[in-house]
Computed example of a mutant assay.
Amino acid sequence: MTNSTFTEIAGVRFKNPFIMASGTYGFGKEYSRFVDLNKLGGISGKGLTLHPKAGNKGIRVYETAAGMMNSVGLENPGIEAFLTKELDRMTAWDTAILINLGGGTLDEYREGAALIEADRLRRERDNKRGADMIELNISCPNVKEGGIAFGIDTEAARKVVREVRRATKLPLAVKLSPGAKDIAEMASMCEDEGADAVSLINTFSAMKIDVRNRKSVFANGYAGLSGPAIKPIALRMVHQAAKAVRIPVIGMGGISSAEDAVEFIMAGAHAVQIGTYNFVNLRAGAELAQDLVTFMEEEGISSLDEIRGII
């Protein structure tokens, strides 16, 4: 029996459902020393903003029970530097490439998407491969509205999704925040505004206190919690989103085994992203892809379509 792990989202082909999550894989270069990146379903690059960002000061990563916390602060070289210095290397790999786009204002999102679209047109004209998809990160703080994340309120998020959708013809996946007031409503709004997919969830806001020094471990007070600790909540939210929309859902949150991935697929996900587990196992994506084939053989599953959304 041939076991097919292939999946397709908005015309983009993924040889298997495992996408390396933004913020955990850089732009792939460092991991390429340890694993054949051609075996991955896709890579979502480090989150990008219109202008370069130095990121947060102080401790950025802290291990916690069944997971980790991070307060990196979207350190990145900026969109233009990525397009000119990183994208060619990424597109040389035989795997889907997602550009993760963030911003602090509506204008930054719009201008960032416009730069990516201009790059798409140039590459199309020159017959060169470009990025396959934009993953729009709406968990960024809205600097003009008191720092509240765009992804908390559906109407605030709607403006961002609408503007980015207008600015580019690239397939668009919107990455949802677990802090959204109503995750199903947020996913449905993205579909209404022309998103081709939604991905969820981003990290949970969390805290760690240094009891000896009597202060928060992180300079900003709070940090993002990820890893196996959040998986049951992430799975529930993916299930709710998948029931609310007709567009594909990309699930993530604490996946560290093929069976974890199968849970998300059974909950309705078309693909999954691997984040924190990459720090535990540098070869995570390739190994999980093979483990999934083994699981399917053992369970007599010939295609992921047979189990997708069965719950």
Rank of each mutant, 00 (worst) to 15 (best):
G11T: 05
G11L: 02
V12F: 06
V12P: 01
V12Q: 01
R13V: 03
F14E: 11
K15Q: 09
K15L: 02
P17E: 10
F18A: 14
F18D: 02
F18W: 03
I19Y: 05
I19P: 03
I19M: 04
M20Y: 08
A21L: 11
S22T: 01
Y25K: 04
Y25R: 04
G26L: 01
F27E: 05
F27L: 00
G28M: 05
G28C: 04
K29N: 08
E30S: 08
E30D: 15
E30A: 09
E30F: 07
S32I: 06
S32L: 06
R33I: 08
F34E: 12
V35D: 10
V35G: 05
V35W: 00
D36T: 01
L37S: 05
L37K: 04
L37G: 04
L37F: 06
K39T: 14
L40E: 10
L40D: 05
G41S: 09
G41I: 00
G42T: 02
G42W: 00
G45Q: 10
K46M: 13
K46F: 09
G47E: 13
G47V: 10
L48G: 12
T49F: 07
T49G: 09
T49N: 11
T49S: 13
L50N: 06
H51V: 08
P52G: 04
P52E: 08
P52L: 03
K53P: 04
K53R: 15
K53F: 03
A54E: 13
A54Y: 07
G55L: 01
N56R: 11
N56W: 04
G58Q: 05
G58L: 00
I59K: 07
I59N: 02
I59H: 02
I59A: 05
R60Q: 08
R60P: 00
V61P: 01
V61G: 03
V61L: 12
V61S: 10
Y62C: 15
E63V: 02
T64H: 02
A66P: 04
G67M: 03
G67P: 11
M68G: 10
M68C: 15
M69E: 09
M69V: 11
N70R: 07
V72T: 14
G73N: 14
L74I: 11
E75P: 03
E75K: 10
N76K: 06
N76L: 01
N76S: 06
P77F: 07
G78E: 12
G78Y: 07
G78I: 01
I79V: 12
A81P: 06
A81N: 11
F82P: 11
F82G: 12
L83R: 06
L83I: 12
K85A: 12
K85Y: 07
K85G: 05
E86Q: 14
E86Y: 15
L87G: 06
L87A: 15
T91D: 06
T91G: 07
W93R: 04
